[in-house]
Simulated assay, not measured.
Amino acid sequence: MSDLLSQVEPMIPALRRYAHGLLRNPETADDIVQDCLEKVVSNWSRRRDENARSWVFTILHNLAINRLRQDARRSGMVPLDDMPEGTASIAAGQENMLFGQDVLAAIERLPPDHRSILLLITVEDLSYAEAATILSIPVGTVMSRLARAREQLRTILESKPVGTSTSGPYIRRVK
């Protein structure tokens, strides 16, 4: 049991970050991490590798993808009255905060397979081989998807909304 704790406990923050990045919902992400940890504890003796990190991230990834599929089958609509207060508006912030929000929004616009590769490699600092194991794809596919994800992210961040001028701030009118 101490082996389990010593290997898995340091991974929990990374698991939470990856789940938050994939699911974009803190409560759901925390639920998925908890489900993942339950599976890890109950199946610890069945793992094949000494490298528990890939195994644990694979479990988390599969649980997250299953949740995304469930949510896609169910409607993602929420009645306006059920929305938490303050989610409809964004507080003003400094330029870095706005750029950070732009990056996060751009990552959310990526397809799920590109988003998961980008998060595993750049945020969680996994190797290509570890990411390939987690996603059950060849290493070459990891590299090509990562390249496409980075290119698509760059394109999204560099694109300007139609009809904006090249100088001055971008102001959008919402009706």
Rank of each mutant, 00 (worst) to 15 (best):
M1W: 14
L4P: 05
L4S: 09
L5M: 10
S6K: 13
S6D: 12
Q7E: 15
E9V: 14
P10F: 01
P10K: 01
P10D: 02
P10V: 01
M11I: 08
I12K: 12
P13L: 03
P13V: 02
A14S: 13
R17V: 07
R17P: 03
R17I: 07
Y18Q: 01
A19V: 06
H20R: 08
L22E: 01
N25V: 00
N25Q: 07
P26A: 03
T28V: 15
D30Y: 05
D31G: 07
C36W: 10
E38N: 06
K39N: 09
K39Y: 12
S42A: 02
N43C: 06
W44R: 05
R46C: 04
D49N: 12
D49I: 03
E50A: 07
N51P: 00
A52H: 09
A52F: 13
R53P: 03
R53F: 05
R53V: 12
S54L: 03
V56R: 04
T58C: 02
I59S: 01
H61I: 05
L63H: 13
I65R: 15
I65Q: 14
R69N: 08
D71V: 00
R73K: 12
R73Y: 13
M77Q: 14
L80C: 00
D81A: 10
D81N: 06
M83A: 10
P84K: 08
P84D: 07
P84W: 09
G86D: 03
T87I: 14
T87V: 15
S89Y: 11
S89G: 00
I90V: 15
I90C: 10
A91G: 05
A91R: 13
A91M: 09
A91L: 10
A92G: 00
G93N: 01
E95H: 14
N96D: 13
M97P: 07
F99T: 13
V103W: 07
V103F: 06
V103D: 04
L104F: 11
L104A: 11
A106H: 03
I107G: 00
I107M: 11
I107R: 05
E108P: 00
R109N: 08
R109V: 02
P111K: 15
P111Q: 13
I117M: 14
L119C: 06
L119F: 08
L119D: 06
L120I: 05
L120W: 03
L120D: 02
D125P: 06
Y128F: 14
A129E: 15
E130H: 14
A132V: 00
T133A: 08
S136K: 13
I137Q: 08
I137V: 15
I137H: 07
P138K: 08
P138D: 13
G140P: 01
G140V: 03
R145V: 13
L146E: 12
A147P: 00
R148Q: 14
A149E: 04
E151I: 11
E151K: 13
L153E: 04
L153V: 09
R154W: 09
I156Q: 04
L157M: 14
S159I: 11
K160D: 06
V162Y: 12
G163E: 01
T164D: 02
S165I: 08
S165Y: 12
S165V: 10
G168I: 03
I171K: 14
I171A: 03
R172Q: 12
R172I: 15
R173K: 09
V174C: 05
